[in-house]
């Protein structure tokens, strides 16, 4: 464990808590893409298949349970909670996220470190996580006034992977044979997808104006 990865995990945790806070306290999911939440639930379900077979540490197991639990409960809230579901804007959240799942699965079958079920699922979860934010970014461009919590949620979600890139650089230089091209390239693509969001987020913070993405 290094400071970059720990900071990344805490940032990721913070993004999930911000979202749960928004949904649980103000009982609203306005501006939140259910599609992105469903993709993230799938990412965690396919990435943490080793939850009960490989024990790494209490921290690792605890965080996996938190990410699994929170992502599925957020999907449940937006789909079935009688109050929250009313604020879900399904007419705007129209990204065909199934078109993301299949290419990621095919790519995982073609490009992976080892052709085993567990490894292909893990690789699939990496490719899917890289593009999972797309429905949310599209929704933000359609949502005129982005509320603070939603903006903070997306920012933290992007920042966590950027911190992971620093972690990979650190591990590359400190651990012999630590090379994971698939993870690194997926993580880089994922972070680059946030580039323009980060730009507008920073601008809105610097000029102290409401966050707004150009359509």
């Amino acid at each position: 464990m290094n400071i970059f990865r720990f900071a990344g995990d805490m940032t990721h945790l913070a993004s999930v808590l911000v979202l749960l806070l928004k949904i649980h306290t103000i009982k609203s999911c306005a501006g939140i893409s259910l599609k992105t939440q469903e993709l993230y639930a799938l990412v965690f379900a396919t990435r943490y298949l080793d939850l009960f077979t490989d024990y790494i540490s209490l921290y690792n197991t605890l965080m996996k349970l938190i990410f699994l639990g929170s992502s599925f409960s957020i999907v449940w809230y937006i789909r079935y909670h009688k109050i929250v579901r009313r604020s879900y804007d399904k007419d705007q959240d129209t990204f065909r996220h199934y078109f993301l799942v299949l290419p990621c699965l095919l790519l995982a079958l073609l490009i992976n470190e080892k052709f085993t079920f567990r490894e292909v699922m893990w690789t699939f979860s990496l490719y899917l996580e890289a593009v999972a934010i797309l429905p949310q970014l599209v929704l933000l461009q359609r949502t005129r006034n982005i509320d603070n919590l939603t903006g903070q949620y997306v920012f933290l979600l992007g920042a966590y992977r950027a911190l992971y890139i620093l972690n990979w650089i650190y591990r590359y230089f400190t651990e012999p044979h630590y090379v994971h091209w698939i993870t690194w390239i997926s993580g880089l693509v994922q972070t680059l997808l946030y580039a323009d969001f980060f730009y507008y987020y920073f601008q809105s913070w610097k000029n102290n104006v409401k966050l707004e993405l150009p359509a």
């Binding site: 490989d54 790494i56 965080m63």
Partner: peptide, 10 residues
């Protein structure tokens, strides 16, 4: 062949 190291990252 040795078992690949477990994935220690989240």
């Amino acid at each position: 062949n040795p078992k690949p190291p477990p994935k220690d990252e989240l």
